[in-house]
Design a protein around this nucleic acid. Structure first.
Lengths: 142, 142
DNA sequence: GTGTATGCAAAACATTTGCAGGATG
DNA sequence: CATCCTGCAAATGTTTTGCATACAC
């Protein structure tokens, strides 16, 4: 997704387009993987000397609520990426090194036998590992 | 699993059996679902007036490292339960209300097509919802 | 007795909130 | 020019650490 497309979405939702939000849009347009609040803060901090952490948190939360971003909880904390829109329901393979994600179209819920008396609300299926680039890097380090 | 069986495991690993750890063992022997550190603190606090939070955290961490407990990260924080031992690889249905878990023997990795260049390390498959008891309760509240 | 576990206090983080000034539409 | 957004500071919540005392072995 393009930076200005994201900005248009924010604008359409009634948000004001500040320089900070433009930078935020560019970050998520340019990076395919999950970003921690700290990653975002570091990236934005390069453009804004006086950036504060609460601005980062506030915007991440707002954009998550508006459905522009999606939030996922990992072992090492909360992370964000662009919300996958316009696609069918799917899951992800996630690189433990670079955070990049790859779609898995297969959904295990079809095959899962759920007892009648259990009311399913949601499910989570995630595969973790190392993508090609990061595997090679690790090999060369070893 | 029985309380004294857990205590025996702790003892076998070289841990000293304090009253706090006995209580901890009883808690996890008696409760089938996931417990947050706060749940554990509240439960143990009933027996020990001067209980401190760091004792809870320390013991949960130690028992997780020894493989007695297992730690899972949920949206609303870290939780613990007895490690499923002696069983084959499996996944869980988890009740969002009471935290009780039910095993799912089916593993989606068999059906998942993973590209050759992605090195899989681990995976997570969890189904969330409401168990029979909690569903009924919710209905009667509505 | 020796060494580990505990409780206390304080530190280290992560995240949220109140408020005044500044920028956006 | 009204309102939303930001930055600062401080509050809040969670988890960790250092240290002296107490307890298990």
């Amino acid at each position: 997704m393009q930076t200005d497309e994201i900005i248009r979405m924010m604008s359409a939702q009634g948000l004001r387009i500040t320089d900070q939000r433009k930078t935020l849009a560019k970050l998520f347009a340019d990076t395919p993987g999950y970003q921690s609040p700290k990653d975002v803060y570091d990236y934005m901090g390069r453009s804004y000397a006086g950036l504060s952490f609460d601005t980062v948190y506030r915007n991440l939360r707002v954009l998550d609520e508006l459905g522009v971003l999606e939030q996922v909880v990992f072992e090492d904390g909360v992370k964000f990426k662009l919300h996958c829109r316009g696609h069918d329901h799917h899951h992800h393979m996630i690189c433990l090194q670079c955070g990049k994600t790859y779609p898995i179209s297969y959904c295990p819920m079809d095959q899962t036998e759920v007892p009648d008396d259990f009311k399913v609300v949601k499910h989570k299926f995630e595969v973790f590992g190392y993508c090609k680039a990061c595997s090679l890097e690790e090999e060369s380090r070893a």
